[in-house]
Write a protein that binds this DNA or RNA. Structure first.
Length: 180
DNA sequence: GCTATGATCATA
DNA sequence: ATGATCATAGCA
C-alpha cells in the first residue's frame, strides 16, 4: 500500500473529502477504512474553525496540506481532521467514521469514537500524514464505491450545505441517511 | 484574568 | 433533554 502524496491533499476540501473515502487510516499497526468525511471550507463557511482567521489553534489549517488537525471539544472528545488546500489557504476534512480493519478495539463510527479507538489526541495536532506513525494509505485493490452526500452533522451554522460524504450502504457510517 | 460555548456521545 | 468536562476565543 502506498502512502498518499502531499499533492493528494493540495486540492479543494470537497475534492479531498470525496477522495478520502475508501482510503486507509493507519496509526502504528492499527488500520481502518475511511467511510465518512465532512468538508470544511476556509472562506465563506461559518461552520469552519478557520472562519474567523488564524489563531494559535487554527494556524495548522492555513499551513501546508497533508497534516493532521486534532482538537479537543466538549471537554471529552477529540476530532481528527486532514488539512486540505494549498499552503496559505484554509480548508480541512473532518474524518467522521472509519471501518476497523485490524488492531482496533472499540467502536469507530463517529468522530469522537474513532479518535478514542485509534488513540489520537492533540499530541498529533500538526503532524505530517505523509510520514510518521499517523498516515493515510491508498489500498492496492480499490473496491467500487458509491458516494452518498448530505448536509453536515453537529453544527449550527451553514447546516444546509451538502458537504458530508459517505460510502453508501457501509454499516460503519455514523448516520445512514439524511440528518435533520 | 474570566467566562461562555462547542465540528460529541451515552443515557433516560 | 441532559450531563460529562475543558481548551479556545473574545472581551475586559
Amino acid at each position: 500500500m502506498r502512502t498518499l502524496p502531499r499533492s493528494f491533499y493540495a486540492r479543494s476540501a470537497v475534492e479531498v473529502a470525496r477522495g478520502l473515502l475508501g482510503k486507509i487510516l493507519q496509526h502504528g499497526d492499527a488500520r481502518a477504512r475511511i467511510v465518512e468525511t465532512e468538508a470544511y471550507l476556509g472562506t465563506g463557511d461559518a461552520a469552519a474553525h478557520s472562519a474567523r482567521g488564524i489563531t494559535p489553534r487554527t494556524r495548522v489549517l492555513f499551513g501546508p496540506p497533508g497534516h493532521a488537525y486534532v482538537y479537543f471539544i466538549y471537554g471529552m472528545h477529540y476530532c481528527l481532521n486532514v488539512v486540505a488546500e494549498p499552503e496559505g489557504v484554509a480548508g480541512c476534512v473532518l474524518i467522521r467514521a472509519v471501518e476497523p480493519l485490524n488492531g482496533l478495539a472499540g467502536a469507530t463510527e463517529g468522530p469522537g469514537k474513532l479518535t478514542s479507538a485509534l488513540g489520537l489526541t492533540t499530541r498529533f495536532d500538526g503532524t505530517d500524514l505523509t510520514r510518521g506513525p499517523l498516515r493515510v494509505l491508498a489500498p492496492n485493490d480499490a473496491p467500487a464505491i458509491e458516494v452518498g452526500v448530505s448536509s453536515r452533522i453537529g453544527i449550527r451554522a451553514a447546516v444546509d450545505l451538502p458537504l458530508r460524504f459517505f460510502i453508501e450502504g457501509n454499516p460503519f457510517v455514523s448516520r445512514p441517511s439524511k440528518p435533520r
